[in-house]
Amino acid sequence: MSAPEEDRLGPLARRDGEPVFDEPWQAQVLGLAFSLVDKGLINAGEWSETLGATLRAAADDGAPDNAATYYDAVLATLEKLTAATGALTADAMADRREAWRQAYLDTPHGQPVEL
């Protein structure tokens, strides 16, 4: 068997002063998720169940126990539950993602990026 779980644990308190967000999209995705849960578009219980399952799957896959893994899970959960409401399809999300990518590539430096 592998080493006991305790051996992989680092001091939690050292993370106390970490910034809550490393990148702006992490703040945006949390804001999106909370807004949709608050509005009831996504059920609160379903949100925590699905986020919990996504986090557990990431840990089982060996993802590092850090903020990046957490926000990746938030994003994946939000995409999944938004698609489940029937409001948006996965295809629509993929198409829109590509549209934004192209807009960023096509927009001259310094100008606002718009679709």
Binding site: E23, P24, W25, Q28, V29, L32, L36, Y71, D72, L75, L78, E79, T82, A87, L88, A92, M93, A94, R96, R97, A99, W100, R101, Y104, L115
Partner: peptide, 12 residues
């Protein structure tokens, strides 16, 4: 990831 968030937000 940032593009995925932008896609979600703009569609919503």
């Amino acid at each position: 990831s940032a593009l995925r968030v932008k896609a979600l937000e703009s569609l919503l």
